[in-house]
Amino acid sequence: MNEPWRPSWEATAVYRARVRGCLLGGAVGDALGYPVEFSALDGIRAAHGARGVTGLVPTTTGAVGLISDDTQMTLFTAEGVRQAHEQQPGKRLGVDGFRLIRWAYERWLATQDHRGPEVVEIGPANGSYTGPRGGLVDEAWLYARRAPGNACMSGLGLDFVPDPAAAFGPPGPINPDSKGCGAVMRSAPFGLTGAGCEDAFDAAARCAQMTHGHPTGYYAAGALAAIIACLLEGESVEGAVLRSLRLLARHPNHEETTAALHQALDLADQGSPSAERLQQLGAGWVAEEALAIGVYAALVEDSVERALLLSVNHSGDSDSTGSICGNILGARHGDHGLPHAWVQRVEGRTTIAAVADDLAAVCGPR
């Protein structure tokens, strides 16, 4: 009988470093952008100098390194994805797996509606989820409202679990006109399971439909997850984006997401990165723009630090674009490739690392 294949120590170490890097990098980008999320570029430069934000800066409360709803939701996504793969190891996610991820999002929703992890019923009014407790929902620091998106809040108030056999293309039943960036900014963990680019795309896009029904809203989420999965396989950022574009081309109504990624690639090819160039891609409030800005910053700069700063110094949704850029760069370079001084100051750093390690332990390289 043939011995089962076991990954080498080196492969396992690289995989775990990239999973950690993805989640920590996203948190760093989020923390860089959160204090200036609603500021115009001129205002950012007036407040922080001609170069804009050059590191972690205080929020209006004076706190430094705070994460926003982007990292909050990403962590709950990772927790739900881990639980789904514990239940269905090595399999493409089905209804039961999607339900576990849905429950994870309901636990996040509880952190937005309560002051702390006291014993409360978790879930929407229909009571579809009341336990078990444990994990992130018992972390007191996560009970903080950091400008959560309307589509995320309203969508999770309705009990919808996607059908894994349904065709993509038409608007989903929840918020069918919404293509805000609230789905793409939380979707990187779907790419961290080692299941491959296609499965990552499928799972992320379907779970995005829990809150965002516009095809561009859920395709952008799928594309980010596919990019992350490709990076874990050793692709370059450009190669990962090109592979995600081939996945997008299989589905109807992909054109907005595809066009935004092509624009990011073309703009990066021109070099000479600047905030003014980046703003040609939009402001990042909608899904395809946030994805394109994160991709552009990760492509055009050869320094992780400069790329992260570029991704947040613009007029728009700076925490989401910073988070997406950080997810990409962390998955590409691992946690050791991130600016250590920034990682050390990010809120919840030890919990974020632990969530990453738990996900990596369950999924592992394949």
Rank of each mutant, 00 (worst) to 15 (best):
G364T: 12
R115G: 14
L242S: 15
G80T: 03
R107A: 10
F168T: 04
V19L: 03
S187T: 13
H340M: 12
D30F: 06
T54W: 04
D317W: 01
A290L: 10
A220V: 03
V120W: 01
R246N: 04
V184C: 11
H251K: 05
I227E: 05
V137T: 00
L136D: 06
A63H: 14
L75G: 09
P339A: 06
C152P: 01
G196F: 04
P176C: 05
P89V: 02
G134M: 11
L231E: 12
R332E: 03
V295G: 02
E276H: 13
I324W: 14
V286I: 14
G172M: 07
T321M: 08
M153D: 03
G330Q: 01
A226I: 08
P176Q: 02
L291I: 02
R82K: 01
V300H: 02
C152Y: 02
A183L: 10
A229D: 12
L32P: 07
G26S: 08
L66Q: 13
A353T: 04
V53E: 08
L224S: 12
P189R: 05
R102A: 13
V355L: 05
G157K: 08
A167R: 15
C197W: 00
L308R: 13
Y34F: 15
W103P: 00
R18S: 01
L156S: 02
G222F: 02
R366V: 14
S39W: 15
V36C: 07
S272C: 05
R6T: 14
W103T: 05
G217N: 13
G43W: 10
A208R: 07
G337S: 04
L267P: 14
G172C: 10
A125F: 10
G284I: 05
F76I: 00
D302N: 06
E347K: 04
G127D: 03
A205H: 02
V355D: 04
T211A: 06
D319K: 09
G282P: 04
W5R: 15
Q83S: 13
A47Y: 07
Q263R: 10
A188V: 06
L75Y: 07
P252R: 04
G194P: 01
H212P: 10
A240I: 08
G157E: 09
E276V: 13
N126V: 10
A249C: 11
S178N: 10
Y219M: 03
L158S: 11
G169W: 09
G169A: 09
G29P: 15
G194V: 00
G116H: 02
I122C: 05
F98C: 06
P273G: 07
R145V: 15
D159H: 11
I293D: 00
D113W: 06
R186K: 12
L278C: 00
G94C: 05
D199E: 13
E288V: 01
R18P: 01
D302R: 13
R99K: 11
E305A: 09
W5K: 12
C181T: 02
H214N: 11
M153V: 14
Q83I: 15
P35M: 04
E139M: 00
G239C: 11
L93P: 07
M73Y: 03
R146N: 08
A110V: 13
G116V: 00
H114K: 04
W108V: 08
Y143Q: 00
I328F: 08
W5N: 09
I101E: 09
V237D: 08
P132T: 14
R246M: 03
T54G: 15
A31M: 14
T71P: 02
T12F: 01
C207P: 04
L93F: 05
R186Y: 07
